[in-house]
Design a protein around this nucleic acid. Structure first.
Lengths: 372, 372
DNA sequence: TCTGTGCAGGGAAACGTTTCCCGCCTGTGA
DNA sequence: TCACAGGCGGGAAACGTTTCCCTGCACAGA
């Protein structure tokens, strides 16, 4: 090692974790230069197979693991992805996190998860931390966080993935969820069963995605020529508590709707709970349809009819879109929008309204019939 | 800059992300050395206040954010904590993750979350990734993963936190959950109500924590002199599905128990669902008691009586124990065990067994009475 | 045999910090 | 006024990689 000007330091500090072994140890043991070790590790094809195998043997013997931070420092890429969700305790998100994590790690990325809890201060600090950690890209899966909260990331031209809508800028990818399709299926399913009085419990309408879901519902109803009175549009919070409260509002009406669609499954589950406390039976007295198809949905009583938005598709698209933004020669680097489809999953929380036998075939009637 | 031997490189590669600004830019702008900037940023008191404020002004103007990887590389500390859970989709864990994350980030640490999904291969790769990322410490909150899966971490003397039990080595901290206390309260609660035939649905007994919970139950029953026949100990999986299956096993018995304690809340919720499909009423015909007190528990029908293990206490202890292991002069550096208490939360899924009025005061009877 | 070409592999720069070490400046005491 | 002590701040080493550049060797062609 060549020293340039000053005298060598007297007491080189022992900062390394004792067990840590570096590329230098491998090079020493294999009798090659560290450059060659690096090339072998990164599977550069020009390295002599004989040398490479000596290197791999040495790596195995000393138990070498490349230091990711040094790698990141020099290569400028951290192989870290940020994943921002609204609240990790909402059961939809762990499922998404799990899929995202599995995909990302299988492709050599690590995931830093942050939940905003709808708190701007928390989001702000989250952004700063992600920037400091030099994440390669961030997926903002919040279904409607204010965009200016992430403007720091936008400014620095980070690869970003949004759901539903995002600023139209380079490096910004948007996962377009096709709410229309699934929600239309849901509305038509209820209409086909004979429902004409269908209420909707929305999410917090200040957010983008809940608004879009409500609009999709109203549009589908309009297509069928069914009027939705104002008192049949109730704003919830996308939580079970919100679903309970909203359902109680509907229950207080003079004339109950015969079916209720909900903006997400937790809301629907809340609605079910509110109904359990009444003499009303689901689905005989009132049909309930959810949205998301979280794992819990199929275990409800009755199992919840719901519109499925596949976590897996969302995660796959998010990871692929991020990689497209990160890796310059990715085949889909220019693709800005990624479509996520939704579809109805009919279970047992929906049937024909009491008293009005539907104009449908016998088999369909059976299929939609009550569970117990 | 002094070059030693070779000629300067001709085309210094442009690897930096365009928007990135380094400590050098700040130093330039503030007219000080990078050493001074570093000292100012780290609030070293010897730096002249006048200089420091110039530095902070410059930092603000250029929008400087220290690069964590470079910091980690030189300081040997990544300020990353690993958090290993069994499966993120089990509702207990997101609550824990949220608490842990909030605490860790408020103390300047970032969290890398990994779920093992009970898959050794996945765990293996998880460990390798954590080591490569140079985490400062790892909390293994799996309630019973095989210890040899983490032996790489143990070998390298990483600060580690286990739940319930771990190898007795330096740098290993153990969160001792006092299952006994809460479970005894649960058993005594049921016994006081008059139950003598109490079944237990355990978790997977190959794991450590489920075993400990079962033992605590048996011990408490033994203390009361109540015999537990073998067919009243059913092994579940700590999932809702497991709870359903296990409850169905119990329902198939000639003589039903009058109460069932469950090793976790998801199991209890599964048991409730299995019972909904029968004419039996909870709690009038059979009492159900859970364990964990997840958020969902209070929204069950009826709201679930359960033993609370505070996520928050667990997270607080885990983070503090990790810091104790990481920071050499932490006040509690020598503390190896951290006690987590549990306590019964009485809701409405437990009451006296049908037909046998309990020998208790009127007020108590009312308190434990059926909800609806 | 000599020159030219290609390429594998080694030396060292660079990434952005922290921190050691030393020089210089200021202030104090004789 | 000068010597000396103390402390602030700057220069540069070090962290563990990747990758540039260049050397030296093998081999081919004349």
């Amino acid at each position: 090692m060549i020293r340039t000007v000053s005298t060598p330091r007297k007491h080189p500090p022992e900062r390394r974790r004792p067990g840590t072994i570096s590329i230098r140890d491998v090079a020493l043991r294999a009798g090659v230069s560290i450059a060659t070790v690096s090339r072998a590790v990164n599977r550069i094809p020009t390295v002599d197979p004989e040398l490479a195998s000596r290197v791999w043997k040495a790596i195995d013997e000393v138990g070498y693991l490349p230091n990711t931070q040094a790698r990141a420092l020099v290569s400028g890429r951290s192989r870290l992805l940020g994943l921002i969700v609204s609240e990790i305790t909402n059961p939809f998100f762990p499922e998404l996190v799990q899929e995202f994590e599995t995909l990302a790690t299988s492709q050599g990325y690590e995931v830093l998860i942050g939940s905003t809890n709808y708190d701007p201060a928390r989001t702000e600090s989250l952004m700063r931390r992600l920037l400091q950690r030099n994440v390669d890209g961030v997926a903002v899966m919040t279904f409607g966080v204010e965009e200016d909260l992430v403007k720091k990331l936008v400014e620095r031209e980070f690869p970003l993935v949004f759901v539903d809508a995002g600023p139209n800028l380079p490096n910004i990818h948007v996962l377009k969820v096709d709410y229309g399709e699934g929600i239309r299926q849901g509305v038509q399913h209820l209409a086909a069963l004979g429902h004409r009085s269908i209420a909707f419990i929305s999410g917090p309408l200040a957010q983008r995605s809940p608004k879009v879901r409500l609009d999709a519902f109203l549009k589908s109803m309009d297509e069928l020529g069914i009027h939705v009175p104002a008192e049949h549009q109730v704003e919830g919070t996308h939580t079970m508590e919100g679903g309970i409260t909203a359902m109680e509002q509907l229950l207080a009406l003079d004339k109950l709707p015969t079916a209720v669609m909900c903006s997400n499954d937790m809301t629907a589950i809340g609605a079910l709970h509110a109904l359990y406390r009444t003499p009303l039976k689901v689905p005989q007295d009132i049909s309930i349809v959810g949205f998301d198809d979280i794992h819990l949905a199929q275990f409800m009583l009755p199992p919840l009819t719901t519109v499925q938005m596949s976590c897996r598709s969302l995660a796959v698209a998010a990871v692929e879109a991020l990689r497209a933004g990160i890796e310059p020669d990715h085949p889909k680097a220019r693709q800005k929008e990624w479509l996520i489809s939704t579809r109805l999953v009919v279970r047992q929380s929906s049937t024909f309204p009491r008293g009005s036998l539907p104009a449908m075939s016998h088999s369909a009637q059976q299929r939609h019939g009550p569970a117990r």
